[in-house]
Simulated scan of single mutants.
Amino acid sequence: MPPELLQLVPGRAVPNSPQPVRLYRAALRGHTPTQIEEHLAERGWTNSWRNGISPFHHYHSTAHEVLVMARGQARLTLGGEGGLEVQVGEGDVLLLPAGTGHRNDGSSADLLVIGAYAGGRAWDLCRPEETDVEAARERIGRVPGWGKEPV
């Protein structure tokens, strides 16, 4: 199934990426958290975690991130303040290229997200109000590609 491609514009406070966000709707619906982690690892997406999505704008300048909605639903803003609003639900998979801003604007009480990083790279947490965006752009430029798509 081809993903939805969501192109975000570079911002002054959030770099975003020239590469679009990829949204695979319901691609892993019905998979358990363990099955999701195994699926991602087989495709080179490791260093995984289980939790939710932070309720503040942030991005990662050292890694591409994948977010899988294992359970529940959420309303997200992508790209920073005034960015693209997206509704995601169980089984949806978001591939966020390094530098892509994201924030949880509200979610169901049962939300469970599985996150992982291309090549298991170490990730940082950049908040627009605390991060030198030009230094972040330099780090983003050094992040290698992700190899296989997560789905």
Rank of each mutant, 00 (worst) to 15 (best):
Q87V: 13
T34C: 05
E90I: 09
E42Q: 11
H102V: 05
Q7L: 06
P128C: 07
W123Y: 14
W123Q: 10
R43Y: 01
G91V: 13
T131K: 05
Q7V: 10
V9F: 04
L23K: 00
T34N: 08
E129D: 15
G79T: 11
I53C: 02
P128T: 03
E130M: 06
Q7D: 04
D105H: 02
D105W: 00
P128R: 06
I36S: 08
G101Y: 04
E130D: 14
K148H: 07
A63G: 09
Y117A: 08
T62F: 01
G44K: 01
A109L: 00
G99V: 14
V151P: 04
T100A: 02
N16R: 03
G89C: 06
R12Q: 14
A26P: 03
L78K: 02
A63Q: 12
R137V: 10
P144F: 11
E138M: 08
R43A: 02
A27Q: 01
A135D: 13
D124V: 11
A63V: 13
A74Y: 02
P10C: 03
Y117I: 05
Q87E: 15
P3F: 05
W45T: 01
L96D: 11
T131V: 09
N16L: 05
L5S: 10
W146K: 01
T34F: 02
N47R: 14
P3Y: 05
A63F: 06
L125P: 00
L112S: 01
H58Q: 10
A116T: 11
A116E: 04
Q73S: 15
I53E: 02
P2F: 10
T77A: 06
H57D: 15
E4S: 10
V86N: 01
P144E: 10
L94K: 02
P2N: 13
V86F: 00
H39N: 06
G44Q: 03
V68L: 03
A70L: 09
R142L: 13
L28M: 14
N51H: 10
D132Q: 12
P128I: 07
F56Y: 15
Q35P: 11
L95M: 14
G72N: 10
Q19Y: 12
W45D: 06
A13T: 14
E42D: 05
H102G: 01
G79Q: 13
T62L: 06
P97G: 11
E130T: 05
S61D: 14
A13F: 12
A26H: 15
D110Q: 08
T77P: 01
Y117F: 15
C126A: 09
L78D: 02
R22Y: 07
S17W: 08
E65N: 04
G72A: 10
G141D: 12
L84F: 05
P150I: 03
G11W: 08
T62V: 10
E138Y: 07
H60V: 15
L8F: 07
N47G: 07
T34K: 11
M1S: 15
G72R: 05
T46K: 04
R12P: 09
P18D: 12
E129Q: 15
R139G: 03
